[in-house]
Every structure is written in C-alpha cells, then in structure tokens.
C-alpha cells in the first residue's frame, strides 16, 4: 500500500513525535520501503487461520486481591522531571 506524506504526519501526530519537513520526507521513503516488504504478507492465503498473539497457548494467571505495595512516592519521584507537592507537573491541560 502506497504511503503519502500525510500518512506519516498522521502517524507522527498519533504517536506524538515531532517531525520537521525533511524528516517527514525521509520517513515517507523509509516507511514506504518497509511497507512494501510487509506487503508480501498479502499474497498468503490466511483464510481460516486464527491470529496468533502469543507464541504459547497459555492463559492468564490471576493474582489474589491483596495490597502488596507500600508508598514509595519519594523514591519514584526522584527520577521525575517536574514534581510539586507530590504531583507530577505538566503544562496546563485545558478541558
């Protein structure tokens, strides 16, 4: 499937990746070639083949409902770029 610059920009926006025009141009080229390779999948007959999400046919294990984690805010926030009063700070969110 051919890829337009618009597709790259859309993906970049969804993924919140800043791209300048040169980069967008370059990625159109790269991504087109990758997709061209991926398009080889289209030739395979997969009628009736169930998608495989995990390599083992295992099922989810369930955890007992117990509180096992203590407060470690101070430790976790040591690697945070901006905190105040225990809150993570971001530029104003307008609702």
């Amino acid at each position: 499937m051919a890829l337009e610059q618009e597709d790259v920009r859309r993906a970049a926006h969804l993924a919140r990746l800043g791209l300048n025009d040169d980069e967008a141009e370059r990625y159109v080229d790269d991504l087109s070639r990758i997709l061209e390779m991926a398009d080889r999948l289209q030739a395979v007959d997969t009628q009736g083949v169930a998608p495989l999400a995990h390599p083992l046919d295992a099922t989810q294990r369930l955890r007992a409902d117990e509180v096992t984690e203590a407060n470690q805010r101070e430790r976790f926030q040591r690697c945070a770029p901006a905190v105040e009063n225990g809150l993570y700070l971001v530029p104003r969110v307008v609702e």
């Binding site: 096992t68 805010r73 926030q77 225990g86």
Partner: peptide, 21 residues
C-alpha cells in the same frame, strides 16, 4: 482492595501519588 493489575491499594482519599506503585 488492590488495583486491577498491581498490588497497590485502591483506598480513596490518600495523599497524591502515594498509592501509585
């Protein structure tokens, strides 16, 4: 008592981010 995918408490009204593991 605990969260859907972690062992942190779900109690309401704690100090901010003290129940975020």
């Amino acid at each position: 008592q605990s969260k859907i995918f972690s062992g942190a408490s779900t109690a309401f009204g704690a100090e901010p981010n003290t129940q975020a593991c």
